[in-house]
Deep mutational scan, measured.
Amino acid sequence: MAEQVALSRTQVCGILREELFQGDAFHQSDTHIFIIMGASGDLAKKKIYPTIWWLFRDGLLPENTFIVGYARSRLTVADIRKQSEPFFKATPEEKLKLEDFFARNSYVAGQYDDAASYQRLNSHMNALHLGSQANRLFYLALPPTVYEAVTKNIHESCMSQIGWNRIIVEKPFGRDLQSSDRLSNHISSLFREDQIYRIDHYLGKEMVQNLMVLRFANRIFGPIWNRDNIACVILTFKEPFGTEGRGGYFDEFGIIRDVMQNHLLQMLCLVAMEKPASTNSDDVRDEKVKVLKCISEVQANNVVLGQYVGNPDGEGEATKGYLDDPTVPRGSTTATFAAVVLYVENERWDGVPFILRCGKALNERKAEVRLQFHDVAGDIFHQQCKRNELVIRVQPNEAVYTKMMTKKPGMFFNPEESELDLTYGNRYKNVKLPDAYERLILDVFCGSQMHFVRSDELREAWRIFTPLLHQIELEKPKPIPYIYGSRGPTEADELMKRVGFQYEGTYKWVNP
């Protein structure tokens, strides 16, 4: 592979701008107003304001973009700056750019259920340069409990009458099928589907988006991507930290609602779906819905739930269990780990287990898709061969690698495990991989909904998990304890083995 010439960040961002501006969906010269509902909250200060700053800094926003914060707290732009700027990672050389960014910011205080507050917000936006005809993007960085009041008031008082209007809704989209349907029906009564952007930030990850290209742009994968060759698929999300004093919020939802029903299920769809007619948003989402419709409700015998306990040999936070978090209700049975087996009941995947695993306070930070292939028929190497695996590593250190057998150097035919490896950090030294939120917010500006969740996708996802969630809430089974920093409950490994996964433990990928 030829040595790549190092590029400056300015040059890299210039390439990104060229890609972005050559499309006809990006209205570079139009006025846009980006409204952050819930501007005083954690999500706004840690993710949304920093993301908008990065896009502005790199010249990736339309030229005439204004940012308006809205929340109940009586704040000023200076207050917003004070709480969000520490997350910007701005350099001293960017000081003038930073001043320009905050000059485009404003803030309006108001209630979430008060019509007069929204009329005041609308008047404020109209007073901005060309504000009355601007395109408006409303980001709901809010708890779902206020979605209905907020969307109703936005629709009645704050819509642009000339430009387009788009609304970005953060997960969780309800707690179960019934609450999700209620919320979807409410929002759909106010906005068209092409105006609604239900954001799952995992769909903005580079390697998640790469799944489609790997599958449908490489001839070698087509013939082997089926039940005849693939023994099982494992989708993993692991965090090495616990709730760390923020367990009160987590306890309301648990690990299945927080990660599995959305992030992991979306990745499953991209692995299992048929080739779409095109890369058009609805063509892709149509195929994802077909996959979900082929999955039956989760069966309790295919589920393992766990909850982390303190590690007596650990240090600091590792010595504390979930129930030691003062914000967690006493005696909570909320799971911090889950392993679930699903089956896609169609011709391509009949009988292939899709194993979804996620948890907190585990032994490493990792998100990946792992396809394990069947054993080689007619073994001539005296059971020395391990199964081939194709691994798409989402985070950290984005990579695609194939675990395969090669001859060990020497005189004899002794096979050993090795890999074919594409590590993004080595291959793409001159490429700026956008943060997931950067990519998705740019998608909203461009009107691309491919990486957002459609209402029928959402409904099918909740259909699969709601009976299990209701059973857990009714019966309150005690989750299996696992030690902070471990791989999780051993019962999860036993479940995976029972459905056909072979864990060798003899080879570990190392970032080159």
Rank of each mutant, 00 (worst) to 15 (best):
V5E: 15
A6T: 15
L7V: 10
L7W: 05
L7N: 14
L7C: 04
S8M: 09
T10H: 10
T10Y: 12
Q11F: 11
Q11L: 11
V12G: 07
G14T: 12
I15V: 13
L16N: 12
R17Q: 13
R17Y: 10
R17H: 12
E18P: 07
E18N: 15
E18F: 06
E19R: 11
L20V: 13
L20R: 11
L20I: 10
F21G: 08
Q22P: 08
Q22D: 11
Q22N: 15
G23A: 13
D24R: 11
A25H: 15
A25W: 15
F26M: 13
H27N: 15
Q28S: 12
Q28T: 08
S29K: 15
D30S: 13
H32W: 08
I33W: 09
F34I: 13
F34S: 05
I35T: 11
I35N: 07
I35G: 04
M37C: 14
M37T: 07
G38V: 03
A39Q: 00
A39C: 08
S40Q: 04
S40Y: 03
S40A: 00
S40W: 04
G41S: 00
A44F: 00
A44N: 00
K45D: 02
K46G: 01
K46I: 01
K47W: 06
K47V: 01
I48H: 02
Y49I: 09
T51G: 05
T51W: 03
T51V: 11
T51R: 06
T51Q: 11
I52E: 03
W54D: 07
L55D: 05
L55S: 10
F56Y: 12
R57T: 02
R57G: 06
D58E: 13
L60W: 07
L60D: 02
L61I: 12
P62V: 00
P62M: 07
T65E: 00
T65I: 13
T65Y: 06
F66S: 08
F66L: 10
I67L: 07
V68R: 03
V68Q: 05
G69M: 05
G69Q: 04
Y70A: 07
Y70C: 11
Y70T: 10
A71P: 03
A71E: 02
A71Y: 00
A71K: 00
A71C: 05
R72H: 02
S73H: 05
R74V: 14
L75K: 12
L75W: 12
L75P: 05
L75R: 10
L75V: 11
T76W: 07
T76E: 09
A78W: 12
A78V: 10
D79Y: 07
D79Q: 15
K82R: 14
K82S: 11
K82N: 13
K82D: 10
K82V: 13
S84Q: 11
S84K: 03
S84F: 09
E85C: 08
E85T: 09
E85D: 07
P86Q: 13
F88G: 00
F88I: 14
K89V: 10
K89N: 15
A90H: 06
A90P: 09
A90Y: 09
T91H: 12
P92Q: 11
E93K: 12
E94S: 07
E94I: 00
E94D: 12
K95R: 09
K95S: 12
L96N: 14
L96Y: 15
K97M: 14
L98T: 05
L98G: 00
E99F: 06
D100Y: 11
D100P: 02
F101R: 01
F101M: 00
F101Q: 02
F102H: 07
F102M: 09
A103C: 11
A103N: 15
A103P: 04
A103D: 15
R104L: 11
R104N: 07
N105V: 11
S106T: 14
V108G: 02
V108R: 06
V108Q: 10
A109N: 13
G110S: 06
G110K: 04
G110T: 00
Q111V: 15
Q111R: 13
Q111F: 11
D113M: 11
D114N: 13
D114R: 11
D114Q: 12
A116N: 14
A116R: 13
A116Y: 13
S117A: 15
Y118I: 09
Y118F: 15
Q119A: 13
Q119C: 15
R120M: 13
R120C: 15
R120N: 12
L121K: 02
L121T: 00
N122E: 12
S123N: 14
S123A: 15
S123K: 15
H124S: 09
H124W: 11
H124T: 12
N126E: 04
L128A: 08
L128R: 10
L130A: 14
S132M: 15
S132W: 13
A134H: 11
N135P: 08
R136G: 04
L137K: 00
L137V: 12
L137D: 04
L137G: 08
F138V: 06
F138N: 03
Y139E: 06
A141D: 03
L142G: 00
P143Y: 05
P143T: 04
P144Y: 00
P144I: 03
T145I: 07
T145N: 12
V146T: 12
E148L: 12
E148T: 15
V150W: 03
T151R: 00
T151E: 00
K152C: 11
K152R: 15
N153R: 13
N153L: 13
I154W: 02
H155C: 11
H155W: 11
S157W: 11
C158D: 05
C158T: 15
C158Y: 03
C158V: 13
M159L: 14
M159N: 10
S160W: 06
S160V: 12
Q161R: 07
Q161A: 15
I162D: 14
G163R: 07
G163K: 08
G163A: 11
W164Q: 08
N165E: 06
R166I: 02
R166V: 01
R166Q: 00
I167R: 02
I167S: 04
I167M: 15
I168A: 14
I168R: 04
V169Q: 03
E170N: 03
E170Q: 04
E170M: 03
E170G: 04
K171E: 03
K171W: 04
P172Y: 04
P172S: 00
F173T: 00
F173C: 06
G174A: 04
G174P: 04
L177D: 09
Q178C: 15
Q178K: 15
Q178L: 14
Q178T: 14
S179H: 04
S180P: 03
S180M: 01
D181V: 06
R182M: 12
R182T: 14
L183I: 14
S184P: 01
N185G: 13
N185H: 13
I187G: 00
L190N: 10
L190K: 08
F191D: 03
F191A: 01
F191V: 06
E193K: 04
E193P: 00
E193C: 05
D194W: 09
D194M: 08
Q195F: 04
I196F: 05
I196C: 08
I196S: 04
Y197R: 01
I199E: 02
I199L: 03
I199S: 03
I199A: 02
D200N: 05
H201C: 03
H201W: 01
Y202A: 02
L203T: 04
G204V: 00
G204E: 02
K205T: 04
E206N: 08
E206L: 07
E206G: 07
M207P: 04
M207C: 05
M207A: 03
V208E: 04
Q209L: 04
N210K: 04
N210I: 00
N210A: 08
V213G: 05
V213K: 05
L214A: 09
L214G: 02
R215A: 02
R215M: 00
R215C: 03
R215I: 02
F216P: 04
F216G: 00
N218C: 01
N218T: 03
N218E: 03
N218R: 02
I220P: 03
I220T: 06
F221V: 09
F221R: 01
P223F: 04
I224F: 07
W225A: 01
W225P: 02
R227K: 14
R227D: 05
R227A: 09
D228M: 11
D228G: 09
N229L: 04
N229R: 02
I230G: 00
A231L: 05
A231P: 00
A231I: 07
C232W: 01
C232H: 07
C232V: 06
C232D: 00
V233Q: 03
L235R: 02
L235G: 08
T236N: 07
F237N: 01
F237Q: 08
K238V: 01
E239T: 04
P240K: 06
F241A: 05
F241R: 00
G242E: 05
G242N: 06
G242R: 08
G242T: 05
G242S: 07
E244P: 08
G245A: 11
R246L: 02
G247W: 05
G247Q: 05
G248A: 05
G248P: 02
F250V: 00
F250N: 01
E252V: 11
E252L: 10
F253K: 01
F253G: 02
F253V: 06
F253D: 03
G254M: 00
I255T: 05
